[in-house]
Amino acid sequence: MFFAAILAILVTMSLALTRALLGPTVYDRVLAVNSFGTKTVLLIALLGFLTDRPDFLDIGLVYALINFIGTIAVLKLLKYGNLGTAVRELERNP
């Protein structure tokens, strides 16, 4: 039964990837890739149960955090065009 859920997640991921390829704006792509990353976490967890290796959950945990930080970093770059400075200072003198 984990297999059915994995299949559904794979369908979801391919649809998200389609949206990432279609665009049209860069924000659509970021949204789709972020959604893709969340589904990856679920896929890792389900795979861990399917193959009976609960260690996979640790990878999923780390992936969830990296996915979030990656999305925030891309958005910061898009909004401010700068990754090296704190947002607080960028808003004071843009």
Binding site: A4, A5, A8, I9, V11, T12, M13, L15, A16, T18, R19, L31, A32, S35, K39, L42
Partner: peptide
């Protein structure tokens, strides 16, 4: 959960 995930992806398209 799978159903909601797929429906959400359809909405994404």
């Amino acid at each position: 959960g799978s159903a909601f995930a797929v429906i959400g992806a359809v909405g994404l398209i």
